[in-house]
């Protein structure tokens, strides 16, 4: 019953070799075996979303996964978002500017939810974003400013992409010239 399994996890680009009982959830392993306490645990039945992390790029509930299940996956947690020197990412910056967090407990889950979603759907509308924000629970904000923050981040990313395209060197011989 105290069987311990050897588990190789890849989290935020780092490999970890762990000896853990198979029943340990990914959420507990991230927090208590790897010390990545940014991922929070709010319900342990998949509804509140505080433990949302990216598994191979897709948002998933870390409380509904056993760490041993995701050995071959790339896991990303909230700790991967900021620069190593602490500089906040554009998404984090938007949350701060829009007051998209109060107590901050649900925030890592929302950040990872948004990070995964915007990567897949960069053109998402505010209504689509709101529907995805409905995946997680927040008890402080009433959700409006979370939606605003993610929507603003998406706009900024689109604008940045457009600016990059606009400043890209023109093709030399346009066929319509």
């Amino acid at each position: 019953m105290t069987d311990v399994a050897l588990v190789e996890l890849h989290v935020n680009g780092e490999r970890h070799d762990l000896a853990i009982p198979p029943r340990r959830t990914l959420a507990d392993v991230l927090r208590h075996d790897l010390g990545l306490t940014g991922t929070h645990v709010g319900c342990e039945h998949g509804i509140c979303g505080a433990c949302t992390v990216l598994v191979d790029g897709a948002p998933a509930r870390a409380c509904l996964l056993f760490a041993i299940q995701v050995e071959n996956a790339e896991i990303r947690t909230v700790e991967s978002l900021a620069d190593p020197d602490g500089g906040l990412s554009d998404l984090q910056q938007c949350f701060s500017e829009h007051h998209g967090l109060q107590c901050g407990f649900c925030t890592p889950g929302f950040l990872m939810l948004a990070e995964g979603y915007l990567a897949e759907e960069p053109e998402a509308t505010r209504e689509e974003i709101r529907e995805v924000v409905a995946s997680n629970l927040c008890r402080c904000t009433g959700y409006q400013t979370i939606t605003d923050a993610i929507d603003d981040c998406a706009s900024r990313r689109r604008a940045a992409l457009q600016a990059a395209l606009d400043t890209a060197p023109e093709p030399t011989a346009g066929s319509t010239a």
């Binding site: 198979p22 959830t25 342990e44 039945h45 998949g46 509930r61 409380c63 509904l64 996964l65 056993f66 041993i68 299940q69 071959n72």
Partner: peptide, 27 residues
Amino acid sequence: LLAGGQSLVAMMNYRMARPGHLVDITH
């Protein structure tokens, strides 16, 4: 059997499901 686990693991966390063996087919 353990597939996506989105219902099963929640039930296991509540100890409403307590299988002796989990056969993970996700791989």
